[in-house]
């Protein structure tokens, strides 16, 4: 199969900080509408992998292609226009209202008119259920609301691919559900998503594939049911068991 057939192709990805190799030969592909979940212990390189895809982190070896195009050959801002990102700690623009946060990209990057950008922002806020909070500033929103604005902000750029970097791990437990709900809807609508998350319920129900990363290596991957019920590697099994003990099983959280 040629790499051109996949939406995202990652081949032999290498990344190191100084002497420490944090990503060591990662290979995987994603097709349109795939929901790829990345799991692994902290420091295993999950976030770094995500950040290599939109080049927030530069990598030394291997190739990443988006829609058949080598990301290193793309203009970095053009690449980021096509790849949306949702951060663990939200990173909403503190000085802008929810609506302005979402409108900034369409307005300043896509060059839309103010009115157009505003309309688009309201549509996206509606989509994540926050139309009534359009004029609130980040400091006035709950964590769950902030993260939904973060998702709307990424969606407003019409991305081909969305990156989620532990979108719920900074949230109080009772707020996690609303964010996962939005993510599930997105998946149902056919958005292609690459998610780092430890929400096993979400992973099990929504993911098309789960990858287990450890020490910068891809230990194993497979469809959720298989991975949960019949992990091939000792390390995967141990990790999943610990997660289950912590988060109370593979059912909905």
């Amino acid at each position: 199969m040629s790499r051109n057939d996949h939406l995202l192709t990652v081949e032999d990805l290498q990344k190191s900080y100084g002497d420490e190799l944090v990503l060591d030969g990662i290979d995987f592909t994603m097709d349109a509408q795939d929901v790829q979940v990345l799991i692994g212990p902290s420091g295993s390189g999950k976030s770094t992998l995500l950040r290599c895809v939109n080049r927030l982190t530069e990598f030394e070896g291997g190739t990443i292609s988006l829609d058949g195009e080598d990301v290193m050959a793309m203009d970095v801002n053009e690449l980021r226009r096509q790849v949306g990102m949702v951060f663990q700690d939200f990173n909403l623009f503190a000085h802008l209202s929810a609506r302005e946060n979402v409108a900034l990209g369409p307005r300043r990057v896509l060059g839309k008119s103010k009115a157009e950008a505003n309309d688009r922002a309201l549509d996206e806020l509606e989509r994540v259920g926050l139309a009534d909070q359009a004029d609130s500033y980040p400091a006035e929103l709950s964590g769950g609301q902030k993260q939904r604005v973060g998702i709307a902000r990424a969606l407003a750029m019409d991305p081909k691919l969305m990156l989620f970097d532990e979108p719920t791990s900074a949230l109080d437990p009772e707020l996690i559900g609303e964010v996962l709900g939005v993510m599930r809807e997105l998946a149902d609508e056919g958005m292609t998503m690459l998610c780092v998350t430890h929400e096993m319920g979400f992973a099990r129900q929504v993911a098309t594939d789960i990858m287990f990363l450890e020490d910068g290596r891809l230990v194993e991957h497979g469809d959720p049911e298989r991975l949960f019920t019949d992990p091939r590697h000792e390390r995967t099994e141990q990790f999943l068991r610990r997660l289950t003990e912590l988060h109370g099983g593979g059912s909905e959280s």
Binding site: L56, N77, N91, L104, G105, M157
Partner: peptide, 11 residues
């Protein structure tokens, strides 16, 4: 993180 997010949107 503010600048990172701005870069991630494509600015």
């Amino acid at each position: 993180g503010q600048l990172t997010a701005a870069r991630a949107v494509g600015l």
